[in-house]
Design a protein around this nucleic acid. Structure first.
Lengths: 334, 334
DNA sequence: CACATCCATGCACACGTTAACAATAGTCTT
DNA sequence: AAGACTATTGTTAACGTGTGCATGGATGTG
């Protein structure tokens, strides 16, 4: 059906070896021979058979992009940005194969032959086994978005501690002194990091946060709502609340409105994640944005570096988050 | 490195052909021989080399999922749902290769050898050339989301005319009689379909829409804002406005608020698309949802049918939209 | 002029798999 | 008991490409 190097060879009156070399721009072949062959290839609309190439070169030209799950729980914006970021660096050098980890019944088919490298956008501790499997098989790997301590694995993620620090600092700089915290789900590393950053900011500015200004949370709407309820029932209320994610912030805002108060006029609220809806709720939410697209770009870039230079660099890279200031924080003039 | 059928053959004391047949469960091989070979394969942790398989079987096990663009303009939710839908159908039978059409500098590398089939989620008329290229190459193809008249191409999309009809009918059923229309961008087929559906609903219920109740639009925030401005300046205002997409609806709502009026109390608004933010704006937008996930499922299913049965069914499938009722429409009691 | 050197190309095989055809042994038929 | 048929396995080539080694011609050198 489609032309092969042998067809070209016949027309050019050379061996298929020469054609192969010419099309790969080998220095062994005379320049004019190359040119002649290139022209014939063009005329025949020749495209190399990548399956054959793969077989002999032992490369697949495939890059795996695996998400914890495709079916549920991954936010659309997150997903989109991750694919965009990776795609922007690989362009036409590799094919991007998108998969959900939970679609695998067995990791058996994940081999060095079928993937030149793999990018895991990890959103759960359950991804441990697949990470280990891939590392064991010796496939170049980068894990994004979640800290991971398997040795020999590249790891790129956002510096959430720093992001939370900035959010806290911002509140202080806006004149707030009575600042409360709604924590993330216990056991999640992100929850710990965000809390740590917040605490560090408070310490740094010499602000003490009483125990009554700290409430646990579960990263969901309801727990944010409940926590804010508690704060509102205090004799001395906080003037600002830092919520460890946007969803809890939304719940918190709802609680404020239900109490007949206003955000940000009566209480300021800051979230974390810059979820898609953050810009559209009322008031638009001031929040911390994780640079997902940048993370995936950086991750893809370093992975390609490892693949193409046959290195095995294995550091952990932290990228800075960005504070997105919208309308949910009120400056307080002393 | 990794085991091949020849390694298995040696251990089993048979020829590699027998191993190949055994592992492919050929009826030619004795059941006990099969079992013996399977056990050895298991022990060696054998995985077939798909590149070799592909070469001889002339199949790639790859399915292309192409979007008009990845870099810009595709909405995240749309993107996510499309991938989910397709992914749920193919599972482990194929690898899903995600690409942006605008990343291709040449379609040259898109061949029958590298893709067993291709799904195009089309969002622009500019996709014409690639569709034709793929159809010419004889690669099984389905185009989603946008009507396409290239012969020999499967086409699955939502019935927007019907969706707009329902939206219009809903307004009438809520008691509205003075209903206005903000049209989509001229020249877009979707604009025509949505308008047609709306008109049909008005006719069906015997409601006349004066010319002053019709404004052109560009599918963007600003044109929606401007059009609503016009309606508000009329002596006799409409009580409800159907906007041909959500973004214009948003602009329209903004105009209402700026005029000191309320949605839906003073004017009801309906959108189209169920964009991600539709649920989060205030008031939450009543709108028409296109079943993207269902479209991509249906499309993938039919594509696989064509691939695996070597058919070339080539019909156009219209799927029903769904009216999502939220808070932007007020029932009007006569 | 004989020999070494270098440049451009070809030969033959390899990659891992499937499949057409051949071969062997056992079974059935008459 | 001979021939036909069947069931199971093996032999060999093929898919399209890349590469180590061999080859042959041109060029340079003493």
């Amino acid at each position: 059906m489609s032309a092969t190097i042998k067809d070209i060879a016949k027309l050019a009156g050379v061996s298929h070896t020469t054609v192969s070399r010419a099309l790969n721009n080998s220095p062994l072949i005379q320049e004019e021979t190359k040119e002649r062959i290139r022209i014939i290839a063009e005329q025949l609309d020749y495209t190399p058979n990548y399956n054959a190439k793969s077989l002999v070169l032992d490369r697949s030209y495939n890059l795996g992009l695996f998400f914890t799950t495709l079916s549920n729980g991954t936010s659309a914006g997150f997903f989109y940005e991750a694919i965009r970021g990776v795609n922007s660096v690989i362009r036409d050098r590799y094919q991007l194969i998108v998969k959900g980890i939970d679609d695998y019944t067995s990791f058996h088919s994940i081999t060095k032959k079928s993937f030149d490298g793999i990018i895991i956008v990890s959103q759960s501790d359950d991804d441990g086994p697949i990470i280990e499997h891939i590392a064991n098989k010796g496939i170049p790997l980068v894990v994004l978005n979640r800290p991971v301590d398997t040795p020999g694995v590249l790891n790129v993620l956002s510096d959430e501690e720093q992001g939370a620090f900035h959010a806290g600092a911002f509140l202080v700089n806006q004149g707030h002194k009575k600042i409360a915290l709604i924590e993330g789900r216990k056991g999640f590393k992100s929850a710990q990091n965000r809390k740590d950053g917040f605490e560090r900011a408070m310490e740094h500015y010499g602000i003490t946060v009483p125990d009554s200004f700290r409430m646990p949370g579960l990263y969901d709407l309801e727990s944010g709502h409940k926590a804010m309820g508690q704060f509102l029932s205090l004799e001395e209320r906080p003037t600002a609340v830092f919520c460890c994610n946007d969803e809890m912030a939304l719940g918190a805002i709802k609680a404020v409105f239900e109490a007949g108060l206003q955000v940000p006029k009566d209480i300021s609220v800051v979230g974390f994640d810059d979820t898609v809806f953050a810009a559209y709720v009322t008031p638009a939410l001031t929040t911390v944005r994780r640079p997902i697209e940048q993370i995936s770009e950086e991750g893809a870039l370093r992975l390609l570096g490892n693949i193409e230079n046959k290195l095995n660099e294995t550091e952990q890279v932290l990228l800075r988050t960005e504070l997105i200031v919208r309308e949910s924080v009120q400056p307080l003039h002393a």
